[in-house]
Every structure is written in C-alpha cells, then in structure tokens.
C-alpha cells in the first residue's frame, strides 16, 4: 500500500511540474528553485508532514521534500540551539544529499566524458 501511495503522490508532484513546463514559460532551473521554496513554505504551514506520513518517499524524493527537509532542519535546530539554529539547521539536515551530489559530480568528472545527444 505504501508503495502505491509513493508512486501516486510522487507521480502527481512530477505531473504538476510537467504542467508548469508545458503551460508556463518557466525554465527547468526556475521550477526546481520554486519547488524547493514551495516545499519550505508548505512545511512551515504544516501541510507537508501529513503527505510524508502518507506517501513516504513519494513526498520526500521530489524537490518539495528537499524544501521540507530544510525547513524541518531549521525548526529542529532552533529548538536545540535557539536563533542560531535558523542558520545552521537547514543545510545540516540536507548535507548528506548535497555532499553526495558534489562528490558524485567530481567523481563523474574524473571518469566520464561529455557525449553527443544524437
């Protein structure tokens, strides 16, 4: 059942992104940025955690979930260390994924070459 919800919710969030691509002049970079900020806002409004409880990775894997992670990190850190936590919490919570991206990028740059799309 969890797998079905993950598929449906994750798929729906992606289909919504596709509508933004097709119906607006937004570029992919703007949509990614918008999704993360929207994730922070939805999380702040308390609307995103219920979706995570329902769909698991269906809600955390799309970039809205990245925004939720940042917002949750900030809140948790504020609880632990006060106002300073607002600055440390977000990126700390997201550090595993971000550092993995950077490490994979460097490794791929060393190993792989640019390819023609044809």
């Amino acid at each position: 059942m969890n797998f079905l919800w993950a598929f449906v919710v994750g798929g729906a969030l992606c289909a919504a992104g596709q509508l933004l691509l097709d119906l607006t002049a937004l570029t992919p970079a703007r949509i990614l940025t918008g999704y993360v900020v929207a994730g922070v806002a939805l999380s702040a409004a308390g609307l995103y955690q219920p979706l995570v409880d329902l769909a698991g990775a269906g809600a955390t894997v799309p970039l809205l979930g990245f925004g939720h992670l940042l917002a949750q990190g900030a809140v948790d850190a504020v609880e632990r260390r006060g106002l300073l936590g607002a600055l440390t919490g977000g990126l700390s919570a997201a550090s595993a994924g971000v550092t993995a991206c950077l490490a994979c990028g460097l490794l791929a740059a060393l190993l792989a070459d640019s390819r023609d799309q044809n």
């Binding site: 798929g11 596709q18 999704y35 799309p62």
Partner: peptide, 8 residues
Amino acid sequence: GAGTLVPI
C-alpha cells in the same frame, strides 16, 4: 520531462 526533473 518533469518526471526526471523534480525528483532528487
């Protein structure tokens, strides 16, 4: 399209 754009 967005199916590969929006996930992490």
